[in-house]
Simulated assay, not measured.
Amino acid sequence: MVEKRATQRHRVFKGGTITFENSGIACTVRNMSEGGAAIDLDTTITLPQSFTLLIERDNFVRSCRTVWRSDRRIGLAFVQ
């Protein structure tokens, strides 16, 4: 497989929340880089084009967009 990421991702296992339209969905952050992350959801759900990823424990808040999706795992790009 050819690596297409601009920066290397680091494995993590952190609880997070995806927020949009005044609602929140729990997720597990599986890896992260400066430019994005991969998350796992408990259920399949349709996400809007842009949303916010929150990792409360780290005071981490980033606007995101979906780059790819495979079942319940989603690749995110952080929007600046």
Rank of each mutant, 00 (worst) to 15 (best):
C64K: 00
E21A: 11
D42M: 07
E21G: 10
G24R: 05
V67W: 10
V2I: 15
T28H: 05
Q8M: 15
W68A: 14
N59V: 06
S33Q: 03
Q49P: 07
T43W: 08
Q49R: 12
T52C: 06
W68H: 14
R62Q: 15
S33H: 04
E21N: 13
N59C: 06
Q80F: 09
K14N: 12
A77W: 06
E21F: 06
L41Y: 03
E3S: 09
G15N: 15
A37W: 01
Q8G: 10
I45V: 08
G75S: 04
T46S: 07
E56Q: 06
Q80H: 13
E3Y: 08
V79D: 13
V2W: 08
T19N: 12
K14R: 15
E34L: 13
D42K: 07
L76W: 01
A6N: 09
I25D: 03
T19H: 09
N31Y: 00
L76V: 02
T52I: 09
E56I: 12
G16P: 01
I25Y: 05
T46N: 08
R9D: 01
S50M: 07
I39M: 02
F78N: 00
R65F: 10
H10W: 11
R11M: 13
G15M: 08
C27T: 03
R62A: 08
A77H: 09
A37K: 02
G75H: 02
I45F: 09
V2D: 07
S70K: 15
G15T: 15
D71V: 12
R5F: 05
F13N: 14
I55A: 01
F51V: 00
I74W: 01
T7A: 13
R73A: 07
A26R: 14
S33K: 02
V12I: 13
L54Q: 10
E21I: 08
A38H: 10
T46M: 12
T17H: 14
N22W: 07
S33A: 04
T43Q: 13
W68L: 07
G16D: 02
T19V: 09
R65Q: 14
R9F: 00
V67S: 08
R62Y: 06
N22Y: 15
